[in-house]
Design a protein around this nucleic acid. Structure first.
Lengths: 185, 185
DNA sequence: ACGCGCATGTACCATCTGGTACATGATGCT
DNA sequence: AGCATCATGTACCAGATGGTACATGCGCGT
C-alpha cells in the first residue's frame, strides 16, 4: 500500500487512540490528523472504512504483543504479570479506552468491527490454554482458567481506567494471581 | 415530576436499552419512543439531558438490584450466584451492552455520565466488602476480593455478550467461585 | 365558564454530516 | 519529453442534526 496512505493511517490511529471515535466526525478526525476529510474518503472510502482500518491496526498491535509475550518458555505467571504491567503502564492505559469503545460497537454488530469480533476472544484462547496446560491444568480446566484470566484482566483494566485506584486494583490482581497459582500447583 | 414525563422517560429507556444511544439521534430516539424530538427537548432540555436521565434510571435499577441481593443474611456466595444468574438471564443480558456503552462514555469524561462515574465502582464497594468480611476475610483482603469479584463479573459478562459461549463462560465463573471459596475458608 | 399551566404540533434555523465532481498538482516511468 | 498514476484542493450536495419560536390544544381548579 502507498506510503502516504500508511502515514495517514498512523496519524488517524493516534488521533483515535487519544480521543476515541464515536463522537468524532470524519472532518474532525481529518483536522486533528492534519489533513482534509476529502483525503480520508479518498484513501479509505468512507468513515466506516477508516474505522475498520484503525481497528485493524489495533488488532495488529495486540497480536504483536501476544506473540511477544508467549515467546520462549515463559510460564503463565510470568506472562500474565508482564501483560498486566504492559496494559497498565501510563502510555498504554489510555489506549485501553479505545479497546472498550470498539468492543461496545462490536456488541452492537457494527459491520466494520467484524474482524475485531472474530479475534477479540479467539485469538487469545489457544495461546492461553496451552500456557495453562503447561502449568499443569488439564483440558477443560485450562480452558476455564484462560477465559477467567482474560476476563479478570479486562474487568480490572476497566476498573483501573474508571477509578484510577492503581494500588487497590493491583492488589486485586495480585490476589487473583495467588488464587490461580494455588489451584495450579 | 409529571406523569407524562415519566412515561416518556420509561419509553426512551426501553428504546435505549434495546438499541444503545451513541448512534441514535434525538429524533430517532423520539420516533422509536413514539413521540417527537420536540417533546424530548421540552422535557429533558437537550439530548445530553435525556441521556443523563436514562443513565439515572439505569443506576436506580442497579441500586435496587443491589439492595435486593444483600438483604437478610445471605452469604457472599449465594449473593454472587444470584447476581450472576440475574445478569446473564436472557432478558437482562442484552441490557448489559448499554451498561458498557455508558461506561465507555464515562471513560471519555462526558458530563452527563457524572452520576454514573460516581456510583459505578463506589456503590458496590462497601456492601461487597462487608459480605466478604462476613465470609471471614480481614480488611484489605475483603477489599481486594470485592474489587476482584466485581471485575470478574464484568469481564465475564463482556465475554458472554461477545462470544455467546454460555457454557464456557459459566464454567469460568464456577472456577472463580471455587478459587475464592477456597481462599475464604 | 373561565383562565391558567402543562403538553404538544408545525415550522423553522444555522450548522454539520458523509460523500461526490471536477480540476489540478506532483512524481516517476518510458 | 510526455504520459499516466497517485495525491490533493475547492466547491458543492442533499439530508440530518440539535435546538428554538410561536401557536394551540387540553384538562383541571375555581
Amino acid at each position: 500500500m502507498s506510503a502516504s496512505r500508511d502515514a495517514l493511517l498512523d496519524r488517524c490511529f493516534e488521533v483515535v487512540r487519544r480521543h476515541g471515535f464515536s463522537h468524532l466526525s470524519l472532518r474532525e478526525i481529518a483536522a486533528e490528523a492534519g489533513t482534509s476529510h476529502r483525503m480520508l474518503i479518498y484513501h479509505f472510502g468512507s468513515r466506516d472504512g477508516l474505522l475498520a482500518e484503525v481497528v485493524g491496526r489495533m488488532e495488529a498491535e495486540q497480536r504483536a504483543l501476544l506473540a511477544d509475550l508467549v515467546t520462549g518458555d515463559a510460564d503463565i505467571f510470568t506472562v500474565s504479570a508482564a501483560f498486566w504491567a504492559h496494559l497498565t503502564s501510563p502510555e498504554v492505559l489510555p489506549a485501553q479506552r479505545l479497546f472498550f469503545e470498539i468492543y461496545v460497537q462490536a456488541l452492537y454488530g457494527r459491520e466494520w468491527t467484524a474482524a475485531f469480533r472474530e479475534s477479540v476472544i479467539r485469538a487469545w484462547e489457544e495461546p492461553l490454554i496451552s500456557l495453562f496446560r503447561r502449568a499443569g491444568a488439564d483440558g477443560d480446566r485450562a480452558r476455564a482458567h484462560a477465559r477467567l484470566g482474560l476476563a479478570v484482566t479486562r474487568g480490572l483494566g476497566l476498573d483501573l481506567l474508571m477509578s484510577g485506584d492503581r494500588a487497590e486494583v493491583d492488589a486485586a490482581m495480585t490476589l487473583f494471581g495467588e488464587l490461580a497459582r494455588r489451584d495450579l500447583s
